[in-house]
Design a protein around this nucleic acid. Structure first.
Lengths: 108, 108
DNA sequence: GAAACCTATGTGCGTGGCGCACGTAGTGGC
DNA sequence: GCCACTACGTGCGCCACGCACATAGGTTTC
């Protein structure tokens, strides 16, 4: 399993919360981190995640009022949860190291 | 400030602990994470960090016995600590999100 | 009413970082 | 003698990313 790219992890984090379409993922990441993800970067990363079976496009849902039909929703797969979980553990370990060398306060 | 690449952060984490030479950084990262960093990747990243004033080569020290003279030691700079600290905070926030969506257990 | 912006998905192109291989060179093991 | 380890580095090809642009309907602004 090739390691998850930062943006791929960000996307999986978004999808782990709930099913989302591309544009909503961009907004979600911006809202929680302030980082602007380029559309080219996002849609291509979504493509890769789909091909790697870490995310999957969700079949078109009933069109509730106010639901833009252009939207393509995506869901995280079981393998996606596993990969994201492993990556989260890896990052948590890194944060622990950062605390050990006092780049972060021990209490947090 | 362009965002820190994953490998650049790993290197700064190593240097935040103590001054290290390139090969020792590779071993340090391998020891703590099991990840193998390619030499090409490492030395070029060290070059970038130096140019960005996040790390700096340390002037040749007294050659204590058993100290390979080929070694080029590097130290983290004040700006490097600042950048690494900011990145660590960013990652800690990501880990918190991962916990919120239950990719990681709340207790850890 | 037109210009600008937002929502929504996607492609085209250039730069650059990374993986892999290789180069150099001394030391130590078998 | 050959291989592995230490230590630093370059060469090359691929591909991910940033930026720009295409498309297109809806809304807001002047």
């Amino acid at each position: 399993m090739a390691t998850l790219r930062p943006i791929e992890f960000e996307i999986l984090l978004s999808l782990a919360g709930e099913e989302r379409h591309g544009y909503a993922i961009i907004q979600d990441i911006a809202a929680r981190s302030g980082e602007t993800v380029e559309t080219g970067t996002l849609y291509r990363a979504l493509q890769r995640l789909t091909e790697a079976d870490l995310a999957r496009p969700v079949a078109q849902r009933r069109t509730t009022p106010g639901d833009d039909e252009r939207r393509q929703y995506y869901a995280i797969t079981a393998a996606g949860r596993q990969a994201a979980s492993a990556e989260a553990r890896r990052l948590a370990a890194l944060v622990d190291v950062a605390r050990a060398v006092r780049l972060l306060p021990r209490t947090s």
